[in-house]
């Protein structure tokens, strides 16, 4: 069976190389931005690329449980890395917005409060902070597995807010953010008791 072969092949593949690989896209994008590869307006391009990468990784993280439950593919070992890298990209996305895009400190705060799509994006970021801070073995021990799992369900809200943030910032009726949002909603729906069947497995 395919799932067994995947699990077997990955048995000895550790998660730590993911952190090294994760450095490549932002460095590459920054280099592209400095050398003209992101077009004549590199700031927005860099901001959008990082935001989209972060959203893709949040989605990847949400895929891990359903993949195990419905396909038997066990990628649980990589979930922490995927989540932390997603957070790392969200921070970079935010930094590009603060430092390169808006630039004006007073306007940043006004934007956070006045502009719903920024409020929503900020809320997603704030929800991710405790998750990133507790993505380590010591925190799991300290909180206990049950409470830790409860806390990390905040990622459902964060991903949903991230998808809504994307939808709210585009002009006109565009398909791409709707696809992202549909995938996120779908992945969350798979976690409803109706979809998972036996409750004790949650």
């Amino acid at each position: 069976m395919l799932a067994k072969r995947i699990n077997g092949a990955l048995r000895h593949v550790p998660a730590w190389p993911l952190y090294i690989v994760a450095v490549v896209p932002p460095v590459w994008l920054l280099w592209q931005g400095l050398t003209g590869g992101l077009g004549v307006e590199p700031i927005k391009a860099l901001e959008h690329e990082l935001g989209e990468l972060a959203l893709q990784l949040l989605i990847a993280g949400l895929c891990i449980t359903p993949l195990r439950r419905f396909a038997g593919v066990n990628l649980l070992r990589y979930r922490r890395a995927v989540g932390l890298i997603a957070f790392f990209y969200v921070v970079l996305h935010l930094l590009v917005w603060l430092v390169l895009d808006v630039q004006i400190l007073s306007q940043i705060w006004a934007d956070i409060i006045k502009r719903p799509y920024i409020t929503v994006g900020m809320a997603a970021f704030v929800l991710l902070i405790p998750l990133a801070a507790t993505s380590n073995n010591a925190s799991i021990r300290k909180l206990g597995g049950k409470r830790w799992r409860q806390l990390h369900k905040l990622v459902y809200a964060a991903a949903l807010l991230g998808g809504v943030h994307f939808l709210m910032l585009v002009k006109g009726f565009q398909i791409e953010p709707l696809i992202y949002l549909a995938i996120i909603v779908g992945l969350l729906a798979l976690r409803l008791p109706l979809a998972t069947g036996a409750r004790q497995r949650a």
Binding site: I43, Q107, R115, P116, Y117, M168
Partner: peptide
């Protein structure tokens, strides 16, 4: 409604 028009790039 979604961004300031006070400045431009």
């Amino acid at each position: 409604p979604r961004w300031s028009q006070a400045t431009e790039r």
